[in-house]
Amino acid sequence: MDTRFTLHFVADKEGQLLREALQEWRISKKALTAIKFDGGLLTVNGVERNVRHVLQEGDYVGVTFPPEERSDGLAIEHGDLTIVFEDDAILVLDKPAHQSTIPSREHPTKSIANLVCGYFEQQGLASTAHIVTRLDRDTSGLLCIAKHAHIHHLTGLAQRSRNISRQYEAIVHGHVEQNFQSIVAPIGRKVTSIIEREVREDGQYAHTDVTVLKRFLLDAEPVTYVRLQLHTGRTHQIRVHMAYLGHPLVGDDLYGGSRHLIDRQALHCVSLSMEHPLTGRPLHFTSMLNEDMQRLLK
C-alpha cells in the first residue's frame, strides 16, 4: 500500500501552468524539489505530468509527496500520548510536565517527538514529527504537531501571519498590580548562558498580554494567578517577560522563582486556536490545569 501523503486539487483557470497553480495552492519550491527528486509524483487526471503542463479548467490534479525520513538523532520509541485531536494533517496533544518536546543532550529519550515517531510507525505513516507549537520540558498543556512537511509549511505560514493563537495560565510570585497589561520587550540569548534568555535591546520582538485572574497568598507569600496571551513565540518568552516584570513564575528557579511550592514552573498551555491548514475550518482546543497547579490554587 502506498503510504505517501497525497493532496488533490481541481484546476479553476484555463491555460494555467501547473507550476503556477501549485504555487497558488501553497506548495513550496522545497516541496516541489523533493517531489521531483525524492520519490514524489504530480498527476493530472491520473496521468503523470511535470510543472510545465498546461492545465484546463476542471482538471483533477494529484500531488503526492515523497516519504519522509527521520533525522539520525530522532529514535523511534513507544509510549503513552494524550491525544486531544487527530486527523490526516495534524495531531494535538496534551503534554505532561517533565517531558521534553524534542530530545536533547540532557534528555535524549522519551520526548514527545520520539513517541510521535513510534505512533506514526504504528499507523504506517511515512512521516516524522513536525513540531508546530513547542513547549518547554516543564511546561504542560496543549501542543500541535504536523503529520507531514507540507502541513508544517502551511502551519508555519499561519504562525507568521499570527493565525495560531495560544493562551497559557501561570502562577507567579508577588501580587501583579495591573489587572491587564501588554509586555512588549525584545528577547535574546543571555551572553553568559547557552540556555537563558533575557530582555535586551538587540533581541527579537516579543509581545505577551497578561491578565490577572486571582491574587492570593500561598504559605503567607503573595502570588498571582494569571492568563497569558502569546503574540510571538520566542524561547522562554513567558518566563522571561514575567521575570522582567518582577514576577517570576512560581517554581521557575532558572528565572528567579522558588521551588518550595512546586517542582517545575507553574505554567500550562490552556487553549490553542487555529484554522485547519487544509480546510480552513476554525479549530479550538482547551486543556485543564495539571493537578500540581490546581493544588496551589486550592
Rank of each mutant, 00 (worst) to 15 (best):
E106V: 11
D136P: 06
Q99G: 03
L91Q: 08
T101L: 04
S104W: 02
I102S: 11
D88A: 13
L157E: 15
S140T: 08
D88P: 05
T101A: 13
K95S: 04
A126R: 07
V132P: 03
A97Q: 05
F120E: 03
N114W: 07
H152M: 09
K110G: 13
D88F: 08
D136Q: 05
G156V: 04
A113K: 07
G156S: 13
C144D: 00
L157N: 07
D138N: 13
L91P: 06
C117N: 15
A158D: 11
C144Q: 02
H148T: 14
T133A: 01
R137Y: 02
T82G: 00
R105H: 09
F120C: 10
R137E: 07
P103G: 12
D80Y: 11
T109W: 03
Q123N: 03
I83H: 12
T139F: 02
A97S: 12
V116P: 02
H98C: 01
D87L: 11
F120W: 15
L143I: 06
A126C: 11
K95L: 03
H150L: 11
V92Y: 07
N114Y: 10
A129C: 15
V132E: 06
T109I: 04
K110E: 15
S127W: 12
I112C: 07
A97V: 00
A146V: 09
I102G: 04
L81P: 02
D88R: 14
S100C: 14
V92D: 09
L142K: 00
Q99H: 12
T128I: 01
Y119Q: 10
G141M: 09
K95G: 04
A129L: 01
A149G: 13
D136E: 11
K147T: 08
T82E: 15
C144Y: 01
E86K: 11
S140Y: 01
I83A: 14
H152F: 08
D80I: 10
E106K: 15
G141A: 10
V116S: 07
N114A: 09
E121R: 14
P96F: 00
T133G: 07
T155G: 05
Q99K: 14
H153Q: 14
G124E: 10
V116L: 10
A89T: 09
D80K: 14
R137K: 15
T133L: 02
T82N: 13
K147E: 06
T101V: 12
L115N: 06
V92R: 02
P103C: 11
H130F: 12
V84A: 10
H152A: 12
A113G: 11
S100E: 14
E86A: 12
I145T: 07
H150N: 12
R105C: 00
L81V: 10
S100L: 10
T155Y: 06
I145H: 07
E86N: 10
L93T: 03
A89E: 13
L157H: 05
Y119R: 09
S100W: 03
R134F: 04
L91N: 09
T101S: 14
D88W: 06
K95D: 02
K147D: 07
R105Y: 04
H130S: 05
I90M: 12
I90N: 05
V92K: 06
